[in-house]
Design a protein around this nucleic acid. Structure first.
Lengths: 238, 238
DNA sequence: AAGTGGTCTAGACCACAAA
DNA sequence: TTGTGGTCTAGACCACTTC
């Protein structure tokens, strides 16, 4: 059997999405749910806390758990939509072009800083553009610590580096720190992207960490501003 | 006495920030912590889960809790830096100008939609610009449901609407759904902001909810792109 | 085999809301 | 007063890492 509290979570999410439990109404009380799912209250509370964190319910002491209207925004609860999702959403086959794939033996200072490298660490540098409806709208610059990724090919970069990491290398990404800013396009942006007169690019700088909290990738994803969208669900405080 | 698990959380955060517990090392085990803080393991685990959610540690089964290097980004763990923080960080007194403060008796369709209003609900409309170093760089357009905010003055809008809501009206914001996109400046942007040749504005659209999950505010915060910055800590999965 | 974190339990007491 | 969610406990068993 799989996790009990996750199956309860999934069940409730399903019921909320289906409309079996309507927005604005109350969930059954924790006591009732323990009977419904034949489990202890703490287990129910774990499931409910997940629902709360992911924006499905709002818990109110003394009252109950209010179901939030999740229909207002159509997206994964939080975060940047990935390139593949973006492309398929726009009804297009995603197309990736690899402009550079090289192994840097002596990384420059800025990169060593970003990846907290020691003097002898080597780094994969990958530069790719992403195309939707025939327009190159995203420029991805990836730097990966060779310590964790011994080999890398053009074919892998054209598909998905992440799938390669997870499926073949058995590396698992656990968290990322992202920063979003707007910059003037560089010469490289002008050369590789179809900017069509846009005067800014949206830049997402990410530090990506593995399960053991080791930093293994730094990425700059540079987007044409008209195609950029980021959503966030922010719960107040702890 | 206040919350036990929160005080434990605060203690550990303090130790991590001070450097008493160094990044890359392991926290004491949960068992050890129960003895250190004279409490049960589940209470310790509540504190540790908070640390994990807020990006201070990474828990690894069988190993322990790794302390993450929190110094790489200097900011509140996640989210948009507020105007006041931004201003004080740049060593300037924040200055707010109120351009409009009006009560709309018949809100247009778009606003009724955004705030899920019934036909007879009235809405406060507030338009303000924010100034740093003598430049108007943020345009805030707020729409507040009068049902929750009976009165509003120019003085309140020049200070902080939020402080008024929380301190005087005893209203508490619980969560917000935000969307970030980049737009061409409108005529209004050109009129009210010091755009200085910038061709885009970063727009943060927010739906703000109260503790009982009722939607009470819709806001568009329009930023000059060079002064915009957003940070995000994204943990994978649930 | 020993130590770590992950899940689950059954019960207790508390703070808050509504009737 | 009753019902709700919030905190806390002491213990159990499991899955994983390390030795």
């Amino acid at each position: 059997m799989i996790n009990k509290y996750l199956t309860i979570y999934d069940t409730l999410v399903e019921q909320i999405k289906n409309g079996e439990i309507r927005p604005g109404t109350l969930l059954p009380s924790e006591h009732e749910l323990t009977e419904q799912f034949q489990t202890s209250r703490e287990t129910i509370r774990k499931a409910l806390n997940l629902l709360s964190q992911n924006g499905y319910i709002q818990k109110v002491r003394g009252k109950g758990s209010i179901v939030i209207d999740v229909s207002k925004l159509d997206f994964p609860v939080s975060g940047l939509i990935s390139f593949k999702e973006l492309a398929t959403k726009m009804g297009d086959k995603p197309k990736t072009t690899v402009h550079e794939l090289s192994l840097i033996t002596k990384p420059e200072y800025a990169i060593r800083q970003q990846l907290s490298l020691s003097a002898k660490d080597q780094v994969w540098k990958v530069i790719r553009t992403r195309e939707i409806h025939g327009k190159k709208i995203i420029l991805d610059k990836d730097f990966l610590n060779k310590k964790y990724v011994p080999s890398l090919t053009k074919e892998i970069c054209e598909e998905s580096i992440y799938e390669y990491l997870e499926n073949d290398l058995n590396l698992s990404i656990s968290f990322a720190k992202k920063e979003i800013i707007v910059e003037e396009p560089t010469a490289e942006d002008h050369e590789l992207l179809d900017l069509e007169g846009f005067h800014n690019v949206v830049v997402i700088k990410s530090h990506v960490y593995l399960e053991d909290a080791s930093l293994f990738q730094y990425t700059e994803s540079r987007h044409r501003p008209d195609k950029f969208r980021f959503v966030d669900f922010a719960r107040r405080q702890r």
